[in-house]
């Protein structure tokens, strides 16, 4: 039985006065995540929007111990936190990396892979806004095909990579995806991860209003439509066993995906796309789902 939104803990670890843009998905996601993780959490945050969102020294809007660290170093620093907590017999405290896609897909990938391979006892969260938002909307390895950024003015020519699948190749106990339109799904996954040991990875799609060029009131809608069109997929892999969750589970069971065009046309970053470009994106999503159907479709959970 899934938790109801009304049953989420009332305690807030994200305080008033944070410095996020209006409509920012980061604080929405972190607020829910910290409700699940609780007060015995230590955040490790690399250079990212989250480093700004905390607000300026000497103040902070995060009411859990937070360590800021260099861009590529969060997973390694969390390894140190994790080992120190063990050495100092404080294993009831959980280190959690809260990193963007730039810090995870690109510059932080080596440290992430190393920490996963070493079996580091921590949760690594990648909130994926599909670009370098903090530095002013540049392309990352997570930026989708065709998207305008300030380093791909005519649209990105390459497709994004799938970091969660790279993470799965490390055979860690828990890999999950989520997005902010489904807060209870995110909450449940955080809660489940918290109860486990070893490396746990959760990736959250985080639609960024200024980066994706949409109105700040549409963040949740944008997140929901990403799932409904199949552009973003909700699943969790527990000890190698894959299970789709929420709306994605229904898509796997045969429910028709909404047209990808509906999601693309809401975003200014895709305004310049030609019909061929849209077809290219559609082809990519179809191929992804064909693969899921073949591998995971037709099982008991999917129906």
């Amino acid at each position: 039985m899934m938790v109801a939104i009304k049953d989420l803990p009332l305690d807030e670890k994200i305080l008033k006065g944070h410095a996020a843009c209006p409509g920012c998905p980061i604080t929405i996601a972190l607020r829910i995540a910290l409700k699940a993780l609780g007060e015995k959490t230590m955040l490790v945050i690399p250079a990212s929007c989250s480093a700004v969102v905390q607000a300026l020294y000497p103040k902070t809007a995060f009411n859990v111990p937070t360590l800021n660290i260099a861009f590529e170093a969060s997973a390694a620093a969390a390894s140190g936190v994790s080992s120190a907590l063990k050495a100092l017999e404080k294993e009831d405290v959980l280190p959690v990396v809260w990193a963007g896609d730039g810090g995870s897909y690109d510059i932080g990938l080596q440290a992430l892979s190393g920490a996963l391979e070493r079996g580091t006892d921590f949760i690594y969260v990648c909130y994926n806004n599909q670009m370098y938002s903090n530095t002013g909307i540049q392309r990352s390895g997570a930026t989708p095909y065709g998207a305008w950024t300030t380093t791909t003015w005519k649209g990105k020519e390459e497709h994004q990579k799938e970091l969660a699948e790279i993470v799965m190749a490390h055979h860690i106990p828990y890999v999950a995806t989520a997005t902010i339109a489904y807060p209870t799904d995110l909450y449940e996954k955080m809660k489940k991860a918290k109860e486990m040991k070893g490396p746990r990875y959760i990736e959250i799609l985080a639609p960024c209003p200024p980066g994706w060029r949409f109105d700040m009131s549409k963040t949740v809608e944008m997140s929901r439509l990403a799932v409904e069109t199949g552009a973003w997929v909700l699943y969790e892999m527990v000890d190698g066993k894959m299970e789709f969750t929420g709306y994605s589970k229904r898509l796997l069971a045969g429910k028709k995906r909404k047209p990808i065009k509906d999601w693309l046309k809401m975003q200014g970053r895709f305004r310049h796309l030609t019909e061929e470009d849209i077809e290219e994106i559609k082809k990519e999503i179809d191929a992804k789902w064909d693969y899921y159907m073949k591998i995971y479709g037709g099982n008991e959970d999917g129906k």
Binding site: L67, I69, S79, G80, A84, L88, G114, E117
Partner: peptide
């Protein structure tokens, strides 16, 4: 009696020491 983190680079070695020292460990 120490935790030995066999890191994947020197950059990570120092990052891990920073993480550990931030929790109050001698590194």
């Amino acid at each position: 009696d120490a935790e030995f983190i066999r890191v994947e680079s020197e950059h990570s070695a120092m990052a891990a020491c920073i993480g550990a020292a931030s929790v109050g460990a001698r590194t």
